Structure formats: C-alpha cells, structure tokens
Computed example of a mutant assay.
Amino acid sequence: MSSDLKLGLNLGYWQRNSDDSTELVQAAERLGYESVWTAEAYGSDAFTPLAWYGARTSRIKLGTSVVQISARTPAATAMTAMTLDHLTGGRLLLGIGASGPQVVEGWYGRPFPKPLARTREYVEIMRKIWRREEPVTSDGEHYPLPYPGGANLGKPLKLITRPLRAEIPLYLGAEGPKNVALAGEIADGWLPLFVFPEKIERMYGPSLAGTGPDFDIAAMVMTLITDDVRSALDGVKMMLTLYIGGMGAKSRNFHADIIGRMGYAEAAEEIQALYLAGRRDEAFNAIPDELADGISLVGPVGRIRERLELWRKSPVTNLLVMGPRDEASLRTIRDLVLG
C-alpha cells in the first residue's frame, strides 16, 4: 500500500501524423511530473522519441515502456541505454519486455519460447556491460558470448565508453504471475499495462512477495478529465477492444489472459472471438463498463479524486497517466495525485 504516489506521463507510441509532444513534455517537467515514457511495438521505436524529448528538457526522467528484447541483442540495448543515459545526464529508466509470439516471431524473426529465461539472461549481460569489470562473456543458452561457431573468431570485449551510471534503473513490462515475480527478483520496477487496483494484490500478491520498499510499480492508466463519463469509458473500451481482441494470437493472447485473471474470462473469450470474426462493434459492446472503469481514471475531478483512493490503497507506487494532451489537464492531474 502506498499513499504517496509518484506521477509520470506515458506518451505511448510515436505516430507519424501525431503532433510533436515536446511542449507537453516540457509542461509536465515544469509541473513536477517525475517521468515521461515512450513505447514501441512494430512501428516507431522507443529510444528515438526519448532522445528528442531529452534534448529539450533538463530534469524529467526518461522511460521506455517498453523496448522489446527480441528487437536488439543485449549488447545493442545496453549500448543505446548507456549512450542516452549519458547524453541526458543520468535520466534514463530502461523498461524492457518480452512482447508476444506474434511480434517476436512474425516481425523480428526470433524464437519466442522461454521468455523468462531469455529475459533473465538479457538483464545479466546488460548489467555486466554497464559495470565494465571485465570483458563480457556469457554461457547462457540464448545469448552466448562469444558466439560459438561462425568464424570462430569471437573475442570477449569490454564497453569502450565508461557509463555515467553502472546501474541504470531497470523495469520489466510483465503480465503473467511468473514474469511479475521475475521483475520483483531482478529488476528495480514493474510496468503493468492493465491494473484494477482493487484486484492487483489478489492477482499478484505472491509474485510481489519479498520486494523491498524501493521497488517501483509504475502502472499505466488511461486518465481523462471530463463531464462526459460515457464518452470517456468508450475511449477506454476502444483500447481494450484492440488489445483483448487483436494484440495476440487466439491461442496465446497475454492481454486477454490478464483480463481473465481479473475475473472477466468469459467476456475476454467473447471479445476475442468477435474481434477475430471481424465483428468489432460487437466486440466493443461486449466489454463490461465495470472493467473499463476499473482500470482507468476518467470523469469529473471529484470522481477521479474519489477513485484515486483505490490506487493509493493498492501496491502501486507510480501512476503513468495516458491521455492528457494539454497543460491544464496535466496541472489538474498533478494537483489530484500529488496534492
């Protein structure tokens, strides 16, 4: 339980037709937001927008939510993270995630099995690289260094540039209980995508057992100040329709699974079946309002203030708000969350 919440702004994916969010990020920095986060799937990458915003700010922390481990070798991610951390004065928060088999195997052309073992090995190599204690080797199954075979000329190497920080804060994007437990074991924080604050302890209590007071649970939450609650909930439902229905295979959709663990397994199955059948309006209508409301903060100021108490009573320590697009909204949300 955390009565004192930290506050960040999650911008999601950069889109070609979207406005440059520099002014929004600068406003968030002026208003005392601790962090700003960007994402990647199979469009824009997460690092480039952060470099853009980092060059135009001076204090706000810069988070990836998340970079996909199959997109880059551990060394490539460690080098990019080290470089960006240096250029921005030690402001990077590195969020990584395994993604899902459709993207990993269909987009990156890499095998998906054993995502927990791959993640553990990936993190171990990155931390060896940043510490620069010796040339980096790894006898792991997934990222052996030097590579066995090939030209048989691989040589253990040490990072040329000394990192600004040997311990860059590391977060895991995780949805399954075992992956969340891994975050608690090897990372500095956890980036959950969908959080129903009243249910998170029941769903993940055993997975989070043993995490210390500094472990950061940075929850992404759709946030919209409006008198039109119906319209706001419909916006949340549109997002859920895509994630439950189309962001994953029918036989393996981690987003649908988490909705099932929240207690909406039948609804998740129906939503996915309708979406995959091309009946997307029906899939949208099948999403319970209670679910959309439970994972978001929408409505008039008084309603959001009341619902914030549920988040304060939960294990969540950090709200990464998604949705506000102007300084006035950012200020109101700041006042509500930080008092």
Rank of each mutant, 00 (worst) to 15 (best):
Y243E: 02
P146K: 09
I129C: 01
W311Y: 15
R120W: 01
P163L: 11
D214F: 00
R110F: 01
E306V: 00
R16L: 13
N179W: 00
N17H: 14
A286P: 05
D4S: 12
A27L: 02
I225N: 07
I60S: 07
M322V: 15
T161A: 15
E124R: 14
A51G: 15
M79P: 00
L164F: 12
L319I: 12
S44M: 05
T223S: 14
W14S: 14
T48N: 06
G8I: 02
H142M: 00
P213R: 13
L170G: 04
G263H: 12
R59N: 13
V236Q: 09
L330S: 11
T226W: 05
L319D: 07
G154S: 12
G245M: 04
P49Q: 06
L92D: 05
E201T: 15
A39C: 10
A181F: 01
G339I: 00
T80F: 02
D214R: 13
S18D: 15
D234I: 00
L182S: 08
F47H: 07
I160V: 14
A98F: 00
F215V: 08
V298P: 09
Y143Q: 03
G294D: 08
F194Y: 15
G90F: 05
M203A: 14
I259W: 04
L308R: 10
D4F: 06
I217W: 10
A41F: 09
E105A: 05
R305L: 07
R56Q: 14
G210E: 09
Q15R: 15
A256Q: 13
L191K: 04
I186R: 03
P169I: 08
G8C: 02
T226F: 04
G210D: 05
K6C: 01
R261I: 00
A209I: 00
I125M: 05
A265D: 14
P288I: 09
V229S: 00
D257I: 03
A181V: 02
L224M: 11
R56C: 10
M203Y: 00
